[in-house]
Amino acid sequence: MKPSDYWALVLVFALLAVAPALAGPFYTRLLATGILYGTAAVGFNVLFGYTGLLSFGHAMFWGAGAYTVAIGMVKMGLSFPASLALSLLVVGVIALVTGFLSLRHTRIYFAMLTLAFGQLLYAIALKWRSMTGADEGIYGVPRPLGDVVLYYYLILGVSLVVLLALLRILKSPLGLAFRSIRDNPFRAEVVGYPVNRLRLLSYTISGLATGVAGSLYAPLQTSVNPEALYWTFSAAIVFMAILGGSRVFIGPFIGGLLYVFIQDTAMGVTEYWLLATGVTLGALILLLPEGIVGYIWRRLGGRLE
């Protein structure tokens, strides 16, 4: 039997649902971080793996989501659902504006523009002390449901909804349009697709999914700081997608989970954990260019998207 995206999703989330019973609070929190990283990476991959555009600025959506929820709950006194709704609005507007401007170009020029917009937001977060707390960030973000394990299940539920929605879109005519644009944008235009508009749509969907993950991250950490917007996190999201495999839907999600655990393990072993993480990830990508899940998927007879 060939692997299916839906069954892979069900299997992974079923395992994640029983995980807190086996893991202590520390690993539950680590897993929650991995789920959010993974969701952000799947969102990123809508643009990268499915539409063929490499963004180096996805931390702006992650960070904008995290900051908006933190500001909403701490500075404006809004409830968590209201803050989440506000963050979706803010991330959506940022995606539309930066997408409209960045998508005037493709390839490396597009990547550089997204990087520039990401750094612009980082600079704003760093300088607007009264709103963002500058380099200290915002502390005391309330965690909905209080308990880490309960919040873990909220994260798991919301992530599942986001991933199911993305999978539905990618299996729809719109998803096939994205893949056609990725494969041959000129031909896509010749057969009648409004390529620029569809790229903007993909960019916005991608940004919103990453933004939702970021919005849930601030209450998990009970804080947010400018690191969430820094370009290194954009690069980390790219890494997660490639590590898991950008041509399989669930690949970047597994990439996000693995990234968190590789990083945590390396930190426990050596003070040169950044180097160890980099070497491990580099070796994995060199040995398995289609990503870990992509490799397994192909071995099981599945077709890479």
Binding site: I169, P173, L174, G175, L176, A177, L198
Partner: peptide, 15 residues
């Protein structure tokens, strides 16, 4: 994909 483009069916993300 060519049929979807020519019939403008790409606006239906639910099917």
């Amino acid at each position: 994909t060519a049929l979807i483009a020519s019939r403008r069916l790409y606006t239906r993300p639910t099917r």
